[in-house]
Simulated scan of single mutants.
Amino acid sequence: MKAAVIDLGTNTFHLIIAEISATNVQIIYKTNVPVRLGQGRINENIIIPEAFERGIETLKNFKQKIDKYQVQQTLAIATSAVRSAANGIDFVESAKKNADIIIDVIDGDKEAEYIYKGVKATGTINGTSLIMDIGGGSTEFIICNDKELLWKKSYNIGAARLMQAYFHSDPINELDKSAIINHLNNELTDLKEACILHKPDHLIGSAGAFETFASMILKETHIENIKSAPIEFTAYNSLSEKLITSTHAARQNMPDLIKLRVDMIVIAAILTNHILSLSEIKQISLSTYDLKMGVLYSLSELKS
């Protein structure tokens, strides 16, 4: 069976088409578009008109690809930006009417479950691990092992939300950094308790910013061709320091740092550093599989 998954992220819309059987998921096409659905007013829970239009146009283009590949089942999954927006339902209705795409707006718990399934499929989980998926609108945390999911939660601390609320200096100054860290301390008390209880010793970053970290550290590795990779701890610390202390202009000239993430990567580094400190974890890995691969593997399970 050919299946398509559309992941309507706050920053990027992804389309992935795969041939699915009970024993295998074979990717035959994938693309992504930096729609920036959370542009401008994400913390006011509004999709602004320009972002709304970009999103619908992107879905129309995705539908053409889906038809071209004669896909039999399509799942379009919307997360934080759509589920929290006052006009999110308008976007869902417009997608159905104008792009013939039916969107399933999922909650944070379901999002975390799909992320776990995607990461698990890479074989990266060893022992008790903490999976972290930094989105634009929300960030998901999953404590797990390779047998089961032990704890999960989605928080509205995505990179776009934090950037719009707190990132007002260039390079980011101590005042802005302190405001972010104070906010994280207030938000993440139950994550800290869960880490004390379950003692994860491995942080697995799901796609997104962690692909950027890995690309900048593992320069000779083509991230798009791998399922997972270790990220050396001291190399990550050096990179995060470089990113946090750099200016916008300096980051624009850094190799392997895509335009969409030039500023959000600073937030991602501050957030990741905070999680490493909170959990006392010293081992980091990248999983290139995330929510969309988790959806495909869920479909594969249904066929078995």
Rank of each mutant, 00 (worst) to 15 (best):
L37I: 01
I27W: 06
A250H: 13
E148T: 07
I226H: 07
I217H: 03
D67K: 10
Q164R: 11
V33K: 15
A250P: 01
Y297K: 12
G294C: 12
K259L: 12
E220D: 13
A121R: 05
I217K: 05
L260E: 08
N61Q: 11
R36N: 09
S279P: 02
G205Y: 14
P230M: 06
I46R: 08
G205P: 12
G135S: 02
A165H: 13
N43C: 00
S169Y: 08
D90W: 10
I275A: 02
S246E: 00
V105M: 06
R251V: 02
L271S: 02
N186M: 12
L191S: 07
G137N: 01
G158F: 11
L203R: 02
Q70F: 14
I217V: 01
L162P: 02
T221V: 11
K199F: 08
S228A: 14
P49W: 04
D67L: 10
A51Y: 09
T128N: 06
N182S: 15
A95K: 07
N185M: 09
L302W: 01
S238F: 06
A86R: 10
T79R: 08
L296A: 11
Y155N: 03
I101K: 13
E111Q: 11
I181G: 05
T139E: 00
S300T: 09
I66V: 12
G118S: 03
T234C: 06
A4G: 08
A76N: 03
A235Y: 04
E113L: 14
T10C: 04
E93P: 04
D104Q: 15
E280G: 13
D256M: 09
H202Y: 15
V35T: 10
V82C: 09
Q283S: 15
F62T: 01
T10D: 00
E301I: 03
T288C: 04
S129T: 05
N253G: 14
K152L: 14
L260W: 06
D67A: 09
G158L: 09
L37D: 00
R36Y: 07
F62E: 02
V33S: 15
R161N: 02
T288K: 04
E280F: 11
A229I: 07
L276H: 01
V71W: 10
Y166E: 04
L271V: 10
A85L: 06
S300V: 03
S84Q: 14
N45V: 02
V105C: 07
A209L: 08
L59I: 04
F233D: 00
L162V: 11
S154V: 05
L8H: 00
I275Y: 09
S169L: 06
T272V: 02
T288V: 06
I157V: 15
T124P: 03
I142M: 04
E193K: 15
A85S: 15
V82M: 08
G40E: 00
D100R: 14
F13N: 00
L218W: 04
L197Q: 13
S178F: 09
A99I: 12
S304E: 09
N186F: 14
I223M: 13
D90C: 10
I48D: 00
T10M: 03
F167Y: 14
S238L: 10
E220G: 05
Y289I: 03
R54G: 07
G136N: 06
K68M: 09
I6G: 05
F213L: 02
I181K: 13
I284K: 05
V5S: 05
L299M: 14
N98S: 13
S94A: 15
K303C: 05
N126D: 11
I6M: 04
L188E: 01
A214K: 06
C144S: 14
A81Q: 01
L188P: 07
Q64H: 09
I284V: 14
